[in-house]
């Protein structure tokens, strides 16, 4: 189901709905926090150390979390179904949901027509990231300065088996278990984020020499394969 949603997400209908070229947030946490209040999110969702479930579930650690998984909150049957299908709230999925909740999840109880401006969603996602500890958040490594990747490159479907083989280069430094000590963890990243970050190194807009070197030897297909593999790992 998850893979299906992903393909759906990349399909032309979504592009028609004024999707940005890349499904990544670039915005600012402060602006996101402001929008969180002014767009009405805060009316139903609490955040922060004191955040509890209200009309909607609290949104701490929302990014990277399985849908419908906050303890003690009664979700709609529709959301429970998605949860059982394994939907994870990565940034791609949240973006699609926030843009048009009722289209993304018919029968959702979230009575909200959707955030109209794509850049507002960027800001909101940046803000939501700040509510998630780094260890759960591969996407934290996507930076506002990372160049957007062309949709046709993002749309390449990676070969997971090839990605697993290629990942044997990565795990010499980035531990397969996701543990880290000086080199960031990269497991469970959403594919779009993975592709964007690797292209940022390949294009040398990020400056780590080892990563520039490694990515110089990776083509679009290799990057897509790695992204597909790393997204497929579930711990």
């Amino acid at each position: 189901m998850y893979m299906f949603l992903q393909k759906l997400f990349l399909a032309p209908i979504w592009l028609f709905l004024a999707f940005p070229a890349v499904a990544l947030a670039d915005g600012h946490a402060a602006e996101g926090e402001r929008l969180f209040r002014t767009l009405g999110c805060a009316g139903c969702h609490e955040v922060g150390p004191e955040g509890r479930n209200k009309v909607g579930p609290h949104l701490n650690q929302i990014i990277g979390r399985t849908a419908g998984a906050v303890e003690g909150f009664r979700y709609s049957r529709a959301m429970v179904g998605r949860s059982e299908d394994g939907l994870i709230w990565d940034e791609d999925m949240l973006r699609a949901f926030l843009m048009a909740p009722a289209d993304f999840l018919p029968s959702t109880r979230m009575a909200y027509r959707g955030v109209r401006k794509a850049e507002d969603i960027d800001h909101l996602l940046i803000f939501l990231r700040t509510l998630t500890p780094e260890t759960n958040l591969g996407t934290a490594n996507v930076e506002p300065g990372d160049p957007k990747v062309a949709p046709e490159i993002l749309a390449i479907e990676g070969n997971v088996e090839y990605g697993q083989y290629l990942s044997s280069t990565c795990v010499t430094c980035h531990q397969a278990s996701g543990e880290s000590s000086g080199i960031p963890p990269i497991i469970n990243w959403p594919a779009g984020a993975f592709v964007t970050v690797l292209h940022a190194y390949k294009g040398k807009s990020r400056d780590n020499a080892v990563m520039q070197q490694i990515t110089s030897a990776l083509g679009n297909e290799e990057i897509a394969a790695l992204a597909a593999y790393y997204e497929s790992i579930q711990d």
Binding site: T172, A176, E179, I183, N208
Partner: peptide, 14 residues
């Protein structure tokens, strides 16, 4: 240097 320490832990785990 920090990267090298991370690498040591990575390669030995690998």
């Amino acid at each position: 240097y920090g990267e090298s320490v991370g690498w040591y832990d990575g390669i030995t785990a690998d």
